[in-house]
Write a protein that binds this DNA or RNA. Structure first.
Length: 950
RNA sequence: GCCAGAGUGGCGGAACUGGUAGACGCACUGGAUUCAAAAUCCAGCGUUCGCAAGGAUGUGCGGGUUCGACUCCCGCCUCUGGUACCA
């Protein structure tokens, strides 16, 4: 029987679905294991061969763990809200709900083709009201809590209100925005709107003025990746920063815990580093600088280098710092206004250039140096950011490169405070050297000076120690339609109210026009009957960002249909957390940071039993595409488009400025992805059919310039670059096509065989034949050329036993460390060996089928049933190996002279050093080397090798 | 610039704790089978000198530690990804 994978796949796909083979329940008799894939955004392009890399890896692991006796939760769903669907709706009028559903159907069929063992009964999609009902519910929990820094824990906002009622804000140690302290009486005297405003300073979900990328010409707000070099990606219109009241999440309250929590996680060091850098913890101090002639005003700066304070010769504030108006002298106020306007439009511009040119202005006022009392100038400049630290710095041009450049540019005084002569390699800011010009710090090294100055500042009430984080509160508002509506409303006084939990979900209303409303608000703003359903109730028109639904979806899988709560306590207590999470590195800071944050909030509220959601993280590499493009001269030749072969471009050193590159569909390209990839006559014909506007074009190759009508012997070389696999570059490879040709098992194994799962690599089908051949060889252990089943009940040979047990052992080890490529090599070695031995006994083939089942689920299931089993191989136990077949009785010792192998001796295990040495010395090829030379040393590693030094 | 990761045959890659570098696969070459081809099977395959036996050399480059280094240490180069004035 020839291996008919099409028949096998459709047969088992159907049976698995009918028998609900992959459905799991909470089963307390088995240990649980949770394997999670990052759920996909169902884009219009469908899955390409890059996506399944992680899915196949996690599926192999899932199946392996199941066979090892674990109760494995392995679900899948869709991150269904998102910008592309809304953009598509704008372009075509197709409702995002419709296009998303269509895409999901396609994704599902593609995923099924790969043979992934998801429990589809647990599918979630974030745009389902029954799902986002709980996204809204969690948002409300976040909204109704604040963070107590003393207890390091979130508490209900009602507790804070009680405290305010009793004794006001004095003594409250909570994460929040700064405000003037007040007493209990003052709190009671506040209007409800004022009180509401005050609570906003503490809520974990709160509203504040934020900046959005506003594009006047498009009349809309753009996402960061829709802005390139200060211009909108579509249309190239100018984009400015516009102030808007936005929802934010106070993730900064959790900065320290997000940092500490990583210690216990099995994540790659690089992933942890990325998160650490993103959190950006730095220790330093707040220092107060009095303003000259305004004794009631002082400027608070943050510095990590209090030791350099004597070198502080001026102060710089962010242009939008709240004190700027008060610090601007009358003569400068007009100039300051223009400056601020200019910076606003600049902030989106190329920042790299501003790095080189300092840009700031003096406000005409002075501050007093807190220690020396000297008057120093107060400046504003674009290099100081309002959101970091206090939005103000003490500039130390003596030991900070930016301050130095700024001071030099504006001819401000520079005072050296660190002598680095003793440490020649040290540069500015390196925390190396000896303090000079610094009064009582002189002679100390930097570290000693820092702690000495911190003590001094605190003792004299000039400043306090402080820890700052680069991490900012997360913007949680989008001026878009296709997202979760906020479950809040505003009353006539503008006070925010949470909706009653029992009225959730607040459903996203239907819409047929997806254009934003003219004032930059979302399309929802135009639906007045929705935004103002009753008198005195106004709804929020912003919707939640993409990460809202994805920040907790892994919890919903535990109990996906619960309509009483987001997931029952029993199910969460059973599944607890994700044991293995596989996904792309691109989510390093976004999704993974936000999910951890939400999880910690839920932990504080007693809703989840674990502090961290994802115990182990594996980042799969990207499968890249090869972008094939044609070179086209920008200038036309005789009014005709003029293409030129890539080899001629290199040969003639044609400057790139004269050429543009036109991405070409990879199906037209001969030798796709190889150095001599090109279009031949047929390729060019397809190209012209595809892009008829080039039907009159000229094609220049080694054989001269030719027209499409009379092509002969053309080899129009293309430019091959490794890039993203994307619709845009016409280089998407659909797994369905590969599966149709080679089968799902082959596809799965080939993706794994390409290399380590964490590594990125371009898609290349060159080697797939090798895996295909391997599967046929495996098949041929069961069937002969006459299609007869040749499996027998004979007892297996010792060599076959050794081969299979070595394989079982190796597969165990390799799967545990996600080394799937080497596992597949081992299968190949094993099958080659069994074929050589002409081994067809059940004793060997039974465990072989079970060992390979996680990798090739269809074929193994078929073979398993051919062996006479009536239940699925995927429910069978993973075979154990028997050490007795793995003990070696003899060892081939390499005999080395000076570390180089010169001969071999075969000796029994456990030979003594003397025996080994003697045997080695008897070797003629060794004698030749040692002859006449004294042996200085003999190194013997028992059961490993022998080395002689001469 | 900074941070992280990686450089091994023509190609994808292996070598897990310092111990026979190149497993496994692709491509290529020769042979068997075939009327022929596909498929299949067998053999060879880092570079270099040599008819051969055998030698030299070889894991980005330069040094070092070691009996022995792809693996450890120091310095550099290149590539990939992330990040962007963070006080």
């Amino acid at each position: 029987m020839k291996l008919d994978f099409e028949h096998i796949e459709s047969k088992w796909k159907k049976i698995w679905a009918e028998t609900h083979l992959y459905k799991v329940n909470e089963d307390t008799t088995k240990p649980k294991y949770y394997v999670l894939d990052m759920f996909p955004y169902p884009s219009g392009a469908g899955l390409h061969v890059g996506h399944p890399l992680g899915y196949v890896g996690s599926d192999i692991y899932t199946r392996y763990k199941r066979m090892k006796g674990f109760n494995v939760l392995h679900p899948m769903g869709y991150d269904a809200f998102g910008l592309p669907a809304e953009q598509y709706a704008l372009d075509t009028g197709v409702h995002p709900a419709k296009s998303t559903s269509d895409n999901i159907i396609r994704y599902r069929s593609q995923l099924d083709n790969i043979g992934l063992s998801f429990d589809w009964s647990r599918q979630v999609r974030t745009d389902d009201p029954e799902y986002y009902r709980w996204t809204q519910w969690i948002f409300l929990q976040i909204f109704q809590h604040y963070y107590d820094k003393t207890d390091d824990k979130a508490y209900p906002i009602s507790r804070l209100i009680d405290i305010f009622n009793n004794k006001g804000s004095i003594g409250v140690n909570a994460a929040g925005s700064s405000h003037a302290p007040f007493t209990g009486d003052q709190w009671a005297a506040m209007t409800p709107a004022e009180q509401s405003q005050m609570l906003m300073n503490y809520r974990l979900a709160y509203r504040k003025i934020g900046y959005v990328n506003w594009c006047e010409a498009l009349g809309t707000v753009l996402a960061n990746d829709e802005v390139k070099d200060g211009l909108s990606e579509r249309g190239g219109f100018p984009v400015v920063q516009k102030e808007m009241l936005q929802w934010s999440l106070r993730i900064t309250a959790y900065a320290e815990r997000l940092l500490e929590g990583m210690e216990s996680l099995q994540w790659s060091e690089s992933m942890k580093t990325v998160q650490r850098n993103w959190i950006g913890r730095s220790e330093g101090a707040f220092i107060h600088f009095q303003v000259a002639d305004q004794p009631e005003v002082s400027i608070k700066v943050f510095t990590t280098r209090p030791d350099t304070i004597f070198g502080s010769t001026f102060i710089v504030l962010a242009p939008d710092h709240e004190l700027v108006p008060a610090l601007t002298s009358v003569d400068f106020s007009k100039a300051a206004e223009t400056f601020k306007e200019r910076i606003k439009s600049k902030s989106a511009e190329q920042r790299s250039t501003s790095q080189k040119t300092p840009d700031g202005m003096w406000l005409g006022s002075y501050a007093l140096h807190p220690i020396t009392g000297d008057e120093i100038q107060i400046w504003i400049a674009d290099y100081v950011l309002r959101d970091y630290g206090t939005g103000a710095i003490m500039a130390v041009p003596g030991d900070d490169a930016r301050d130095r450049a700024f001071a030099v540019h504006y001819q401000l005084p520079v005072l050296e405070v660190i002598d680095r002569l003793q440490v020649p390699d040290a540069e500015m800011g390196d925390r190396e050297g000896i303090m000079i010009n610094s009064s009582f710090l002189d002679g100390l090294n930097v570290q000693a000076a820092i702690s000495s100055m911190l003590d001094y500042l605190e003792k004299n009430n000039l400043g306090v120690r402080n820890v700052e984080y680069k991490l900012r509160d997360a913007n949680f508002s989008r001026q878009r339609y296709w997202g979760e509506p906020f479950p809040v409303y505003y009353d006539d006084a503008g006070i925010v109210h949470a909706m009653d939990e029992n009225t959730l979900p607040l459903e996203l209303p239907d819409l047929d026009d997806f254009k934003p409303s003219p004032d930059g608000r979302s399309p929802l703003a135009r639906l007045t009957e929705w935004t103002q359903p009753y008198p005195g109730v106004t709804r929020e028109t912003d919707t939640m960002p993409g990460y809202a639904g994805s920040s907790w979806y892994f919890l919903r899988y535990m109990d996906p249909t619960n309509d009483k709560t987001f997931a029952s306590k029993e199910s969460i207590d059973y599944w607890k957390d994700v044991d293995l999470y596989i996904g792309g590195v691109e989510h390093a800071v976004g999704h993974l940071m936000y999910s951890r944050f939400w999880h910690k909030v839920l932990y504080d509220l007693g809703r989840v039993p674990t502090q961290e959601p994802f115990k182990k993280l594996v980042n799969q590499g990207m499968i890249q595409g090869i972008v094939e493009s044609l070179f086209l001269f920008k200038e036309k030749k005789d009014g005709k488009a003029h293409f030129i072969s890539a080899d001629l471009v290199t040969e003639r050193k044609i400057p790139k400025e004269q050429l543009s590159t036109i991405p070409v569909h990879i199906d037209f390209v001969t030798d796709y992805g190889h150095p001599d990839s090109h279009l031949n006559e047929m390729g060019i014909a397809s190209f012209i059919k595809w892009r008829p506007e080039y039907s009159t074009a000229l094609f220049e190759t080694k054989n001269g310039i030719q027209q499409f009508s009379d092509l002969k012997d053309v080899e129009l070389r293309t430019l091959s670059e490794i890039g993203k696999m994307s619709k845009r570059y016409h280089n998407v490879v659909n797994p369905d096509d590969v599966i149709a040709r080679y089968g799902a098992d082959c596809f799965r194994m080939y993706e794994m065989f390409l290399g380590p799962i964490e590594q990125s690599k371009p898609w290349d089908t060159m080697g797939i034949e090798g895996v295909s051949k391997f599967l046929k060889k495996l098949w041929s252990l069961f069937f002969n050329d006459q299609d007869e089943l040749i499996v027998n009940r004979n007892s297996a040979s010792d060599d076959a036993q050794k081969a299979i047990h070595a394989t079982i052992k190796k597969i165990n080890e390799d799967v545990e460390r996600f080394s799937f490529n080497t596992a597949i090599s081992q299968f190949m070695i094993c099958v080659n060996e069994l074929r050589k031995l002409d081994e067809h006994s059940v004793e060997i083939l039974d465990p072989l089928v079970r060992t390979i089942a996680p990798f090739a689920p269809f074929l193994s299931e078929e073979l398993w049933s051919l062996l006479g089993h009536h239940s699925s191989v995927h429910l069978a136990p993973f075979p154990d190996y028997d050490e007795k077949w793995l003990v070696t009785t003899s060892i081939i010792y390499p005999v080395c002279i000076n570390g180089k192998k010169r001969g071999e001796i075969n000796l029994p295990v456990g030979s003594t050093n003397a025996e080994i040495e003697k045997a080695a010395m008897d070797l003629p090829e060794i004698l030749k080397w040692v002859e006449g030379k004294p042996i200085r040393k003999v190194v013997i590693v028992p059961d490993k090798m022998i080395n002689m030094v001469i």
